[in-house]
């Protein structure tokens, strides 16, 4: 079921400040460029309409067809950049009054899975949060080299074993979690520590698909 938030239809977003509302009204009528761009498509449409009235087959030029295909790509979207009719229509509307923002629906990300963490995982999450906090304060020595090595080794073992046994999950929770440089340095360090060359990694990945 949707959350109550998701089912709230036809809300109107209220302007945040009177200033932004004024800006909205001032900028609304600008649609002329789109109308101009659509002139060619209008010509094609007129030709088609004239032929339709006479019930004769329509001979379209190559250019007309390009405009039609563009229109197909643009779909029926009245906002499409080559959609002349629609742009003209919206321009008229905009002159009359500033467009209202109507919230049709909100679709939240999936409801959080309150997955139970075991005691060790809870400790791990709390410890990681502590480390992140210390790092944010610039405490580069928050974790000693020995502690870092021990943690890295344990994580390597447990992650590797899970992947091999088919319990696959990404090693990081999201792309924003670490920088590319962090990944390069860490991967390089791991390979060096295990006396592996980059080509060996590539070969192994090709063979195993992991």
């Amino acid at each position: 079921m949707s959350s109550p938030k998701a089912r709230a239809p036809k809300q109107t977003a209220k302007s945040a400040t009177p200033k932004s509302a004024a800006k909205t009204a001032a900028k609304a009528p600008a649609k002329k460029t789109a109308v101009k761009k659509a002139a060619a498509k209008k010509v094609a449409a007129k030709k088609v309409a004239a032929k339709r009235r006479s019930n004769e087959p329509v001979a379209l030029s190559g250019e007309d067809k390009v405009h039609f295909v563009k229109a197909i790509w643009e779909g029926v979207s009245k906002g499409g950049k080559d959609s002349g009719k629609a742009s003209a229509k919206s321009a008229k509307t905009a002159k009359a009054k500033a467009p209202q923002v109507e919230i049709l629906r909100r679709i939240p990300a999936a409801a959080p899975q309150n997955k139970k963490q075991n005691a060790l995982s809870q400790k791990g999450l709390a410890f990681a949060a502590e480390l992140e906090a210390a790092f944010a304060k610039g405490e580069l020595e928050a974790l000693s080299p020995e502690a870092t090595q021990a943690l890295m080794g344990a994580i390597c073992k447990i992650y590797g074993a899970n992947q091999e046994s088919g319990n696959k999950y990404p090693i990081l929770s999201g792309r924003m979690a670490v920088t590319g440089t962090d990944v390069m340095i860490t991967c390089g360090g791991l390979l060096k520590a295990a006396d592996l060359q980059v080509f060996e990694l590539g070969m192994w990945q090709s063979w195993t698909g992991i």
């Binding site: 919206s90 467009p99 209202q100 923002v101 049709l104 629906r105 909100r106 679709i107 939240p108």
Partner: peptide, 11 residues
């Protein structure tokens, strides 16, 4: 992961 669909004029 959240989304919102809005209508502004014809868009």
């Amino acid at each position: 992961g959240d989304r919102q669909i809005v209508r502004i004029g014809e868009q």
